[in-house]
């Protein structure tokens, strides 16, 4: 079996009486898209935060690239090569699109403590940034102020910034959220090609996208993973149908 790139081993996290994560074990293997789905309040965001390093699990460990990263913070995990996108776009809104991408490239290069040279004239950084923008199709908007981007374009930029980091694994929190059908389809196509570069742990509500993309799907309900399997397995899993898909059918 291939060694997983990213792995959680028995992660638990409680807030008072609420068990947001209970004994969650999840792995991400090279070349795959692993989707994490679950109804609202299932604890997806809490889990993502523990994987990204914003939150420490009460027990259990997180491993990345064969290393126990449980004690490391977000910054350290990002430096190791965890490329994350946020559910609500986390971008520097006053910056141009290109500046946001350059920031990513700068973070990847790691020499931020330079005080004199104009960063936007650093051709290596700008090149890397433009390359990433081109891959997500934002090259024509490089000079646009990020605040003026449409919602969908912001999502694209989030992905572009993650790309500049040349990450070893992607952690994407609802990249399709708020996209129209067209935008969602385009991004689906893009993520499909991205898995060859680095595997993606994808939290997503858009079921069409999930079933189209995911090599494996894990279903999280009340902080617990109730099933992990291929799209077909998950579709036919009675427990999943009852706990999750059934609810949606009823609604």
């Amino acid at each position: 079996m291939v060694e997983p790139l990213l792995q959680t081993r028995g992660i638990s996290k409680s807030f008072g009486a609420l068990k947001a994560s209970s004994d969650v074990s999840l792995d991400l293997r090279p070349g795959e898209i692993h989707a994490l789905i679950g109804p609202n309040g299932a604890g997806k965001s809490t889990l993502i935060k523990q994987i990204a390093g914003n939150m420490k699990p009460d027990s259990g460990t997180v491993h990345f690239l064969g290393q126990d990263v449980t004690a490391l913070d977000t910054v350290a995990r990002a430096r190791l090569g965890l490329g994350r996108t946020f559910q609500i776009s986390a971008l520097a809104m006053e910056f141009t699109v290109l500046q946001n991408a350059v920031l990513g490239a700068l973070g990847a290069r790691g020499d931020v403590m330079r005080f004199f040279r104009p960063v936007m004239k650093d051709s290596a950084l700008v090149e890397r940034a433009r390359e990433a923008l081109e891959r997500v199709g934002l090259q024509d908007h490089a000079a646009t102020r990020t605040a003026e981007l449409s919602h969908g374009q912001r999502r694209q930029l989030e992905v572009a910034v993650a790309l500049t980091l040349k990450p070893r694994a992607f952690l994407m929190d609802e990249p399709m959220a708020g996209l129209g059908a067209g935008g969602s389809k385009r991004l689906t196509g893009f993520l499909d090609g991205l898995r060859a570069q680095a595997p993606i742990l994808l939290v997503e509500h858009d079921m069409d996208a999930v079933f189209a993309l995911a090599d494996r799907i894990s279903v999280l309900v009340y902080g617990q993973i109730i099933a992990t399997g291929t799209a077909a397995e998950i579709r036919t899993n009675p427990e999943v149908r009852r706990a999750y898909l059934g609810e949606e059918d009823a609604a």
């Binding site: 913070d73 986390a90 520097a92 006053e94 700068l106 990847a108």
Partner: peptide, 10 residues
Amino acid sequence: QNADRVETVG
């Protein structure tokens, strides 16, 4: 503007 963004790029 956004501390999360900066942390996420390391």
